[in-house]
């Protein structure tokens, strides 16, 4: 029995096109001199739009579950939700690890520090959840917000607090106190970052948005620490409080980079 090579005709070409298969060299040679196939190929071109629509539909079909619902909320609600989540985190942190003494530092200073940190957190959250249909803020304003977010806790640590200094907690060594504050701050900040991630529509692929979320987390962590820790020494505040934002930026930056590479 001998095998003969079948020369493709119009039907073969149309069949291959309808299946989305690449044309063989023989089929391409046929198309190059066949007006019917050329017309058929031109008519089939809108199919590429159909194929693209099928991809879009499939991607939208995967938008299910709680996270999909959260990121599809109107942006106003997403920002409000993130701010409410931040308030819950601080309240929970304060209830779980209450400040041992409110006396030494004047109440006005405490209120001022927490208010500044809360306002900056809300601004960073708003900027981080900015939707894509809005022209992006200038790079400088985003970088400025990140810098302010990381610098304000350092400023709070370096500037002398009013009132008598509190150097340690009763029964707690300096290093455990620093580590304890660092962990509480990082915990609160991480919870906020997770909340922002859940509400994110894809902006967290950008390094600036990742840093912005980390800065927001650092600010919130410091707000929680203001309501937890009465120590006012510069060394404690620098090592236990101001490093929270920097550590979150480094950790979330690395995690987001790995995640992006894995999904790229």
């Amino acid at each position: 029995m001998t095998h003969t090579r079948v020369v493709p005709d119009c039907a073969d070409v149309a069949e291959a096109v309808s299946r989305g298969e690449p044309l063989s060299a023989e089929a391409q040679a046929h198309v190059s001199h066949c007006r019917v196939c050329q017309a058929s190929r031109d008519a089939a071109r809108p199919a590429s739009g159909d194929a693209l629509f099928a991809r879009v539909e499939a991607a939208i079909g995967e938008e299910r579950g709680l996270l999909a619902r959260l990121r599809s909320l109107p942006t106003g609600l997403r920002v409000l939700g993130a701010v409410a989540w931040a308030v819950i985190i601080v309240l929970a942190s304060t209830l779980a690890t209450p400040r041992s003494a409110y006396g030494p530092v004047p109440a006005q200073y405490l209120v001022l520090a927490v208010t500044v940190l809360a306002i900056l957190t809300a601004l960073a959250v708003r900027l981080d959840l900015r939707p894509l249909q809005v022209v992006p803020s200038g790079h400088a304003s985003v970088l400025g917000m990140i810098a302010v977010g990381l610098a304000v806790p350092v400023a709070l640590a370096v500037l002398p607090a009013p009132g008598p200094q509190v150097t340690s907690l009763p029964g707690v060594g300096d290093t455990p106190a620093i580590v304890g504050c660092f962990l509480i701050g990082c915990g609160a900040g991480t919870l906020l970052i997770l909340g922002l991630r859940a509400l994110d529509r894809g902006a967290h692929r950008s390094p600036t948005n990742v840093l912005l979320a980390a800065a927001a987390g650092g600010l919130l962590g410091n707000a929680a620490l203001e309501l937890h820790c009465p120590i006012t020494t510069t060394v404690h505040l620098l090592l236990g409080h101001a490093t929270v934002g920097i550590a979150l930026a480094a950790a979330y930056g690395i995690a987001a980079l790995r995640l992006t590479r894995r999904t790229a």
Binding site: L52, V56, I60, S72, Q133
Partner: peptide, 18 residues
């Protein structure tokens, strides 16, 4: 280009309530 168009319409879906 096709990928970006796909992403754009996915974001249109995510942002539809905006």
């Amino acid at each position: 280009a096709s990928d970006l168009v796909q992403q754009t319409f996915l974001h249109l879906h995510r942002s539809r309530l905006d």
